[in-house]
């Protein structure tokens, strides 16, 4: 499955406090109601902690959630 690029903005101002690394676009797998998606999201290169930015959560992600709920 291809990895979808869903964000244009730069999230490198965020750093993982525990590891001290800035976040990099990384492939991440998301799941809702048994559907899975591969997308590129900012994550800590060390511990893998993923940031779900506000505009994604309220925009595209919310839209997909709603769509899957009606499936």
């Amino acid at each position: 499955m291809s990895t979808l690029k869903v964000l244009d903005e730069d999230f490198s101002a965020w750093k993982c406090v525990t590891c001290g690394h800035t976040l990099n676009p990384s492939p991440v797998e998301l799941e809702y109601l048994d559907s899975k998606f591969n997308v590129e999201l900012p994550a800590c290169p060390d511990c893998g902690f993923v940031l779900i930015p506000e505009e994604l959560a309220l925009g595209k992600m919310a839209e997909v959630e709603r769509m899957l709920e009606d499936k």
Binding site: V28, L30, E31, Y32, K36, G48, A57, M61, V64
Partner: peptide, 12 residues
């Protein structure tokens, strides 16, 4: 300052 939420889950 800000709060948001989502239902989708990060698998890794």
């Amino acid at each position: 300052h800000r709060v948001w939420s989502h239902r989708m889950r990060v698998l890794g």
